[in-house]
Simulated assay, not measured.
Amino acid sequence: MAELINLKTFTDKRGNLTVIEKVIPFDIRRIFYIYGVDDSVRGGHRHKTTVQAAICLVGKCTIHNDNSKVQQEFILDSPDKCLLIAPEDWHKMYDFSEDAILMVLASEFFDPDDYIYEPYHDRI
């Protein structure tokens, strides 16, 4: 099930420093980011093995999550919010602000065979 965690942030008169250390429950094998999104919906899948951590570095976006038991909606609107997405979490991202940059850390290298695009049958 998806879980929202707060990343440790140090703030002083010089600005903010956010640390991603000892909170991601996997070794990072891939990093990608999504930006320049129009009103499209991104994602629309789950994985067989990949665990992900999503952070909206700039702007905001919404992530809808469905693990076949619970549906949740998360608004990522601060770079100190990190959404952990389990392999069984069918998710889609939408409502990107014009300036949004969504960074995703992944536990596995890209493998097209790891993707399951069909939503859970009882949630259509």
Results as ranks from 00 to 15, higher is better:
Leu17Tyr: 12
Leu17Arg: 15
Thr18Asn: 09
Thr18Ser: 13
Val19Ala: 14
Val19Ser: 14
Ile20Cys: 12
Ile20Ser: 11
Ile20Asp: 08
Glu21Gly: 12
Lys22Asn: 14
Val23Glu: 14
Pro25Phe: 06
Phe26His: 07
Asp27Phe: 11
Arg29Ser: 15
Arg29Lys: 15
Ile31Gln: 11
Phe32Asn: 15
Ile34Phe: 01
Gly36Leu: 08
Gly36Asp: 08
Val37Met: 07
Asp38Gln: 15
Asp39Glu: 13
Ser40Arg: 14
Ser40Ala: 14
Val41Gln: 09
Val41Lys: 04
Arg42Glu: 00
Gly43Leu: 05
Gly44Phe: 00
His47Asp: 01
His47Ser: 04
His47Leu: 06
Lys48Asp: 10
Lys48Glu: 10
Thr49Phe: 13
Thr49Met: 14
Val51Gln: 15
Val51Ile: 14
Gln52Ser: 12
Gln52His: 10
Gln52Lys: 13
Gln52Trp: 05
Ala53Asp: 07
Ala53His: 04
Ile55Trp: 01
Ile55Glu: 01
Ile55Cys: 08
Cys56Ala: 08
Cys56Ile: 02
Leu57Trp: 01
Val58Trp: 07
Gly59Ser: 11
Cys61Arg: 00
Cys61Asp: 00
Ile63Trp: 00
His64Lys: 15
His64Phe: 13
His64Gly: 12
Asn65Tyr: 04
Asp66Ala: 06
Asp66His: 02
Asp66Thr: 02
Asp66Ile: 01
Asp66Met: 05
Asn67Arg: 06
Asn67Val: 00
Ser68Asn: 12
Lys69Glu: 14
Val70Phe: 02
Gln71Cys: 12
Gln71Phe: 02
Gln71His: 10
Gln72Asp: 11
Ile75Ser: 07
Ile75Asp: 05
Leu76Thr: 01
Asp77Val: 07
Asp77Arg: 10
Asp77Tyr: 03
Pro79Glu: 07
Asp80Cys: 12
Asp80Trp: 10
Lys81Met: 12
Lys81Ser: 08
Cys82Trp: 00
Cys82His: 00
Cys82Gln: 03
Leu83Glu: 01
Leu83Met: 07
Leu84His: 02
Leu84Arg: 10
Ala86Thr: 12
Ala86Tyr: 08
Ala86Arg: 09
Pro87Val: 03
Pro87Gly: 05
Glu88Ile: 08
Asp89Val: 03
Trp90Lys: 06
His91Cys: 02
Lys92Phe: 02
Lys92Gly: 05
Lys92Pro: 01
Met93Tyr: 02
Met93Gln: 11
Met93Cys: 05
Met93Asn: 05
Tyr94Ile: 02
Asp95Ser: 13
Phe96Val: 03
Phe96Pro: 00
Ser97Gly: 09
Ser97Ile: 03
Glu98Asn: 13
Glu98Cys: 10
Asp99Tyr: 03
Asp99Thr: 05
Ala100Gly: 08
Leu102Glu: 00
Leu102Phe: 00
Leu102Ala: 05
Met103Ile: 09
Met103Gly: 07
Met103Glu: 05
Val104Tyr: 01
Val104Thr: 09
Val104Gly: 04
Leu105Trp: 00
Leu105Tyr: 03
Ala106Glu: 07
Ser107Asn: 08
Ser107Ala: 11
Ser107Leu: 06
Ser107His: 08
Glu108Gly: 11
Glu108Asp: 15
Glu108Gln: 15
Phe109Gly: 13
Phe109Ala: 15
Phe110Ile: 05
Phe110Tyr: 13
Asp111Trp: 04
Pro112Cys: 08
Pro112Asp: 13
Asp114Ser: 06
Asp114Gln: 07
Ile116Pro: 01
Ile116Gln: 07
Tyr117Ser: 14
Glu118Met: 11
